[in-house]
Design a protein around this nucleic acid. Structure first.
Length: 874
RNA sequence: GCCGGGAUGGCGGAACUGGUAGACGCGCCGGACUUAAAAUCCGGUGGGGCCAAAACCCCGUGCGGGUUCGACUCCCGCUCCCGGCACCA
């Protein structure tokens, strides 16, 4: 396979240099460098699991490390930090499984990960290492939560940066006189409705069989539990939420200011899902109770044949109280009641589209334009979270409504007709109507729509809306797909939510000087029988005093989700040991934003969006100086198994990076993962590919040795200008490729150079250059040879070679491609760029070309200097 | 269904701003070294035509059209694959 002695050499120097680098913290980033420009390069920090790094980690960290090393040599003050996202369910579950405290388990995993990252050659600044489970870290995670609690969002407020909308202290929330009069408690209750962190009743999944709360990710399609495959229940719990929807517009609009892959931007826009539409009030017959619906197709309002609300809708509660007084018969009432009870508990993963069900409430609303009686249904295809949780049913022009109407035997009134059909006259329209087998959702001509009939629906739309608005029963509104962020988890292994509940005073945050609220150690970390956190049993910890009245109070036992610590960690790297502030503003000013953020495509929406949200909030309250956290984001590709499929234990195609590094040493692996494919490509692992790179490195080492030997016996040896020119072209290519994240072609260029020049040893100057070019890819090897040639430690803090542009363009042998009518007919080697006349002459002289020009008239000659000449003949 | 990205030899992938398609690596074939194998080194390697070689010619970047002197690259219409979202009103 590969030369054993060579591999052992690589492993020895790896040992030697990684030790020295870490001991001296060679890669420490200096705050406020006097002359160098800052460059903040960051990779998503790992979730340290007991199984160690996987290949995806290894490749992405190696690739960002190449970048960090390159820019460091280019003279930037590079910050390249690393830390641990160590809270979360996997560690917790694993700790339970092995019956050990999560702290201990985590500690081991972190140690293991760190050793592995050092072995990879990661040039991290370890003085800035952070750990989200460290109380000194999560103190600030808790602090941020309290700031959310203490602020409200004023969408009209003019920010110092000129934008509109800003978080403001809750004390600045205007309190209506009516509320103020009712006293302190009423004021607080009023404020609570506006806080950016607030309590709300939210569904959580519960497995009655396993007696455990179940996270979203553990719900199978069809609403069963991943572990036992038994149906789950939906339970409604009071949970903390963060008002991310307040920032929806800024989160969308500011995407224009950052350099992210288009796919990521689109994913975020879709996730936020801003859309404009109309809210319309439908009044219940003979009452002043109204049901407000949301629609984006107000033009179809004349086709409404029913109104439907979700089972969770407030109308349902009102109905259960008042229906009988409104003359609903017992049978109907009981049917509605039973239906609601059933569907409210039902867990259905949204993408599992079941047959639509629903029940007639026996009540009607009045159509606001026609005055017709419209039946009201409760139906579970109407989602409470979307719009107002109530819809106007237009079966003719909405497929879902169509299906529901068919099932319920409701009428279908087409009110928009395809233009072609409309033109053909009344008979054609009737025929078209009779043949409708599905909803017609496209544009067309308004029909049977009162005064709006005959208009294009796109023209009628704003007119109808305006008309309804003038009637005082409609509003133009903006809705988001994005929902507020449920920030409570019923588990143990997370940041305690720093809130205290007092019977008298309600919820209050823990005073800042009492932070952090640390996670108590327990005798038993298992979940309670009823699926609640073991924190519920930590009575000593729970019982505390109320920060407001000093009376007895209880701590919040829900912890934060695992996103909590990871959405702001890039800020803490800047000032990890500061116990007075989250970050020194001067350091934040110097380092932010992150210049390059590498991560997995799977974090395009959740992590990246949450992180941007938290950052914007911190920006509003003056903690950070920039509106966006990450100037540039790139997604790294995945490493697939040798079979070309995603690595997974069940497939048995997992390649463990640790095994490979043990076998070959890091340098070949680093260069191979750089070479294997594009930065963002998903590429299969190939042992042969790795061996190919190892072979190249072996030849490289022989080449370096030969060059050194040669210089020993011949110290004045000099390469020719021509040779040096080639090396300078290599400098240009490698540097340019690294800057553009094209590591694969950079490595190819190095290989090409060696292939071409292996027989010519390098002179002293060029030897130094060549070693430097290798340094980002194979840091151990480069460092060792740097020492061998007697240069000052370390090659990684040395200056990246400059190329001489003049030299780069010299001694180039161009191939002049001669085409006739765009077809290649000859290739002529020429020195330097020649004039068109010369090129034409040369080309015509060649028999290969002459053959095609003979007897033809040359209509046109296209000459691209240094590339080709093309004769267009007739 | 909607949104985003993609399709290039046996494989991973190159190709500037529209200018020699297949760099580099793997694999494969042939040769050298060796008693032999491995390792290493040298040569070849998109498909086809020509008995063979050289020369030469034709075809070729998912499919069908188009623009252009010239198209992997731009435009129009598809197919398939990957990723995200999805009963979003």
């Amino acid at each position: 396979m590969v030369n054993r002695r060579f591999i052992n050499f690589l492993k020895d120097i790896q040992q030697k240099w990684s030790k020295r680098w870490v001991e001296e913290n060679l890669y420490q980033a200096l705050d406020f460098h006097p002359s160098k420009e800052k460059m903040y390069i960051m990779s998503e920090f790992p979730y340290p699991s007991h199984t160690g790094l996987h290949m995806g980690h290894a490749r992405s960290y190696m690739m960002t490390d190449i970048l960090a090393r390159f820019w460091r040599m280019k003279g930037k003050n590079v910050l390249f930090p690393m830390g641990w996202d160590a809270f979360g369910l996997p560690t917790y579950n694993y700790a339970i499984k092995v019956g050990r405290p999560p702290f201990e388990v985590k500690e081991e995993s972190v140690k293991n990960f760190k050793n592995q990252l050092i072995a990879l050659g990661g040039s991290f600044d370890w003085s800035r290492e952070i750990d989200t489970t460290d109380p000194n870290y999560y103190k600030w995670t808790q602090w941020i939560f309290i700031q959310f609690y203490n602020h409200w969002y004023d969408p009209e407020y003019k920010r110092p940066d000129g934008g509109k909308g800003m978080a403001r202290p809750i004390e600045e929330l205007p309190i209506p006189e009516k509320v103020r009069k009712q006293g302190k408690r009423a004021i607080k209750e009023y404020q609570d409705k506006f806080r950016l962190a607030y309590k709300g009743k939210m569904p959580v999944y519960y497995c009655p069989h396993c007696k455990i709360g179940v996270a979203d990710e553990e719900v199978e399609p069809g609403g069963t539990h991943e572990r036992c495959h038994k149906p789950l229940e939906k339970r409604y719990l009071e949970q903390w939420l963060l008002r991310i929807t307040a920032y929806a517009d800024r989160l969308i609009d500011d995407l224009d200011t950052v350099d992210y892959p288009e796919s990521v931007k689109e994913a975020q826009r879709n996730w936020i899902g801003r859309k404009y539409g109309t809210e319309v009030d439908f009044y219940l017959e003979n009452t002043d109770y109204k049901i407000t619906i949301f629609t984006t197709r107000i033009d179809t309002i004349y086709g409404v044949t029913f109104v439907a609300v979700s089972p969770e809708h407030s109308f349902v509660d009102w109905y259960l109280e008042n229906a009988k007084n409104l003359g609903v018969d017992d049978q109907t009432f009981e049917k509605v009641k039973a239906y609601v009870e059933k569907t409210r508990k039902e867990v259905k993963k949204e993408f599992e589209i079941k047959e639509k069900t629903g029940v007639d409430t026996g009540l009607n609303v009045v159509h606001p334009l026609t005055g017709e009686s419209i039946p009201v249904f409760v139906a579970d295809f109407v989602l409470q979270e979307v719009g107002t949780g109530a819809i106007m049913g237009v079966p003719a022009h909405d497929q879902r409504d169509f299906e529901f109407a068919q099932k319920m035997g409701l009428p279908i009134y087409p009110v928009i007709i395809p233009p072609g059909v409309y033109k053909a006259g009344e008979d054609a329209i009737m025929e078209w109507v009779m043949q409708l087998t599905k909803a017609y959702e496209d544009n067309g001509i308004m029909y049977a729509s009162g005064d709006f009939s005959g208009l294009k629906n796109t023209e009628a739309k704003p007119k109808i809306e305006e008309y309804l608005i003038n009637m005082g029963i409609a509003r133009r509104v903006k809705y988001y797909h994005l929902r507020d962020w449920v920030f409570s988890r019923q588990h143990y292994w997370g940041e305690p939510t720093p809130m205290v509940y007092c019977e008298k005073c309600g919820w209050n945050p823990v005073p800042e000087d009492q932070l952090p609220v640390t996670l108590p150690e327990l005798d038993d970390y298992r979940m309670a029988e009823d699926g609640t956190s073991p924190l519920q049993r930590a009575t000593d910890w729970i019982n505390t005093t109320c920060p407001e009245c000093g009376g007895p109070a209880r701590r919040e036992t829900d912890v934060m989700p695992n996103w909590a610590g990871s959405n702001w960690y890039y800020i803490r790297y800047l000032d990890p040991h500061n116990d007075k502030q989250l970050v020194d503003p001067k350091k934040a000013e110097y380092w932010l934003p992150v210049d390059f953020y590498d991560g997995g495509a799977e974090h395009s929406t959740m992590h990246l969006l949450y992180s941007r949200f938290v950052h914007k909030f911190l920006y509003d309250i003056g903690v950070v100086p920039t509106p966006e956290p990450y100037a540039k984001r790139r997604n790294h590709g995945l490493v697939y198994g040798p079979d070309g499929k995603k690595m997974s234990k069940s497939r048995g195609n997992v390649v463990n990076p640790w095994d490979v590094i043990e076998q070959f040493g890091s340098d070949p692996v680093r260069m191979y993962v750089a070479f294997m494919g594009p930065y963002d490509g998903n590429v299969p692992w190939s042992d042969e590919g790795l061996i190919g790179v190892a072979r190249f490195l072996e030849r490289t080492v022989e080449y370096l040795d030969r060059s050194i030997e040669n210089l020993k016996s011949n110290p004045d040896y000099k390469n020719t200008q021509e040779f040096t020119a080639d090396l300078h072209r290599l400098i240009k290519r490698v540097g340019g490729d690294i800057e553009n994240l094209k590591f694969n072609t950079a490595v190819a260029a190095l290989m090409e150079f060696l292939n071409n020049h292996e027989d010519t040893p390098l002179d002293a100057t060029n030897l130094r250059v060549f070693i430097k070019l290798l340094a980002p890819f194979v840091p151990f090897l480069a460092e060792d040879y740097w020492e061998k040639i007697g240069e000052k430690y370390s090659v990684h803090t040395s200056k990246w070679p400059e190329y001489d542009e003049k030299l780069v363009n010299q001694y180039l042998v161009y191939t002049l491609v001669v085409q006739v009518n765009g077809k290649v007919r000859n290739q002529i080697k020429v020195q330097g760029k020649i004039s068109q006349e010369e090129a034409e002459k040369l080309a015509k002289e060649s028999p290969k070309v002459a053959k095609y020009l003979e007897g033809k008239q040359i209509k046109k000659v296209i000459y691209v200097p240094g590339r080709l000449i093309n004769f267009v003949v007739g």
